[in-house]
């Protein structure tokens, strides 16, 4: 019997084209055995949320380097809750000042990883968070 794979949407919201980080993380998650649904650039919050639902993703990772992080994190989290999918783990990274992180966590983000975070930290955290989420189901 197959084990239950972790499915993660990795998305680049907004107009920011810097996708080195998103791609490196996507690869690292794949190499950790996860199924990564990669949406590519210029996604609206609506597209990201709809993708999460259609793909039955456990989590969605968003990468933003343009400064629009607060806008997108809150919008995506709110929309997921509206669609009765508040259990989906939202995490992310990019150029995000430390001072903005508490606000994002407050809004419902599971974790925000700053520049220089090893991918292993991100993978371990996500594995733990998904395990916790599934235990509640």
């Amino acid at each position: 019997m197959d084990e239950r794979k972790i499915r993660v949407v990795v998305a680049k919201p907004g107009l920011d084209g810097h996708d080195r980080g998103a791609k490196v993380v996507a690869r690292a998650l794949r190499d950790a055995g996860m199924e990564v649904i990669y949406t590519g650039l210029r996604q609206t919050a609506e597209q990201i949320v709809e993708t999460v639902l259609q793909e039955d993703a456990d989590a969605v990772g968003i990468s933003i380097l343009s400064g629009a992080h607060t806008f997108y994190f809150t919008k995506i989290i709110d929309m997921l809750r509206e669609k009765d999918a508040g259990d989906v783990i939202v995490f992310g990274g990019g150029v995000i000042p430390d001072s903005d992180i508490p606000g994002l966590i407050e809004a419902g983000a599971g974790a925000v990883f700053g520049p220089g975070t090893p991918t292993t930290v991100c993978v371990e955290w996500l594995e733990g968070a998904v395990a916790k989420k599934r235990a509640k189901e």
Binding site: L29, R30, D31, E35, Y38, T39, Q47
Partner: peptide, 26 residues
Amino acid sequence: FSGGAILADRIRMQRHTGDSGVYIRS
């Protein structure tokens, strides 16, 4: 090797995500 995958086909179909008559699964 890992059993993981990067599923990226839907990139080219993302414009349909807002349409309730289309369901895309990777």
